[in-house]
Simulated assay, not measured.
Amino acid sequence: MVGEESGHVPAREALLDAAMGPGRTKKSSEQIRAGRLPANGLAFSAVRPDGSLVGTVRLWNVTAGTKDGANVPALLLGPLAVSPESQGTGLGGLIMRHAIAEAARLGHAAILLVGDPEYYGRFGFSAAKTGSLSMPGPFEPRRLLALELVEAALDGADGIIAPTGRFVLEAASAMAIAA
């Protein structure tokens, strides 16, 4: 597992298109990610020894609604994708465990995602803390899942999940200023 590099972007986009289908950019979670950068240190690529991409996952800074009048910081995981020839090998699980461990190591309190409870439940994700949360568009409530990395991080969280991470343009401006 390596941190995502700019050279992985075209292969990542092709992998996501193949795995998620042509409608992937219309999903509610994509609305949250649009125009944003992944959370610092939380974009990962699984690569073969020859450098070709076989898996990807990214986590994004969001607020999980509010609690006691304050925003509840969290991460939104996704999308997770593994190349067709690597599916069923355990690579997806390895990527997930790595992403969760890194998020915890970096001090994040909770991770949200939209996905199949049957798959993500084995990593500790459930809908137990997401009943008062919603997405900025259509979503299936049973598929809105959370994992608390800090106990009770999502207790009392209520409202719409919204992006808080840096905009892509902010990063481009910062690089231009540094050059």
Rank of each mutant, 00 (worst) to 15 (best):
residue 2 V to R: 15
residue 3 G to R: 15
residue 5 E to G: 13
residue 7 G to D: 08
residue 7 G to L: 11
residue 8 H to M: 14
residue 9 V to G: 12
residue 10 P to Q: 14
residue 11 A to G: 07
residue 12 R to Y: 05
residue 14 A to G: 02
residue 16 L to R: 05
residue 16 L to N: 07
residue 17 D to L: 14
residue 18 A to I: 02
residue 18 A to F: 11
residue 19 A to S: 10
residue 19 A to Y: 09
residue 19 A to D: 03
residue 20 M to K: 12
residue 21 G to N: 00
residue 22 P to R: 14
residue 23 G to N: 07
residue 23 G to I: 05
residue 24 R to V: 00
residue 24 R to M: 07
residue 27 K to E: 13
residue 28 S to G: 12
residue 29 S to D: 12
residue 30 E to H: 11
residue 31 Q to Y: 03
residue 32 I to F: 00
residue 34 A to W: 02
residue 35 G to P: 04
residue 36 R to N: 03
residue 37 L to N: 12
residue 39 A to Y: 04
residue 40 N to H: 05
residue 42 L to Q: 03
residue 48 R to I: 10
residue 49 P to M: 13
residue 49 P to V: 13
residue 51 G to P: 11
residue 52 S to V: 05
residue 53 L to Q: 04
residue 53 L to K: 02
residue 53 L to R: 06
residue 54 V to H: 03
residue 55 G to V: 02
residue 57 V to K: 00
residue 58 R to G: 01
residue 59 L to W: 04
residue 59 L to M: 09
residue 59 L to C: 00
residue 59 L to Q: 02
residue 60 W to F: 11
residue 63 T to K: 15
residue 63 T to M: 08
residue 66 T to Q: 13
residue 66 T to K: 14
residue 67 K to C: 15
residue 68 D to R: 12
residue 69 G to I: 09
residue 70 A to I: 12
residue 71 N to L: 06
residue 71 N to A: 15
residue 73 P to I: 08
residue 75 L to E: 01
residue 76 L to S: 04
residue 76 L to C: 00
residue 77 L to M: 04
residue 78 G to E: 06
residue 78 G to P: 09
residue 78 G to H: 03
residue 79 P to H: 06
residue 83 S to Q: 01
residue 84 P to V: 06
residue 85 E to C: 05
residue 87 Q to D: 05
residue 87 Q to K: 10
residue 89 T to A: 04
residue 90 G to V: 14
residue 91 L to H: 01
residue 94 L to G: 11
residue 94 L to H: 13
residue 98 H to E: 13
residue 99 A to Q: 00
residue 100 I to A: 05
residue 101 A to I: 04
residue 101 A to W: 07
residue 107 G to Y: 07
residue 110 A to E: 00
residue 111 I to A: 04
residue 117 P to A: 00
residue 118 E to W: 10
residue 118 E to V: 13
residue 118 E to H: 08
residue 123 F to T: 00
residue 123 F to K: 03
residue 125 F to I: 05
residue 127 A to C: 13
residue 128 A to M: 04
residue 128 A to I: 04
residue 130 T to Q: 04
residue 131 G to I: 13
residue 131 G to N: 14
residue 133 L to Q: 00
residue 134 S to G: 08
residue 135 M to G: 05
residue 136 P to Y: 06
residue 139 F to I: 05
residue 140 E to W: 02
residue 140 E to P: 11
residue 140 E to G: 08
residue 140 E to K: 10
residue 142 R to L: 10
residue 143 R to A: 15
residue 144 L to Q: 06
residue 145 L to A: 07
residue 150 V to E: 04
residue 150 V to S: 05
residue 151 E to F: 10
residue 152 A to N: 11
residue 153 A to T: 03
residue 154 L to M: 01
residue 154 L to Y: 09
residue 154 L to I: 02
residue 155 D to P: 01
residue 156 G to W: 07
residue 157 A to N: 04
residue 161 I to T: 08
residue 162 A to N: 10
residue 165 G to K: 08
residue 166 R to Y: 10
residue 166 R to C: 09
residue 167 F to V: 07
residue 170 E to C: 11
residue 170 E to F: 13
residue 173 S to P: 14
residue 176 A to S: 14
residue 176 A to N: 14
residue 177 I to D: 12
residue 177 I to Q: 15
residue 177 I to M: 12
residue 178 A to N: 14
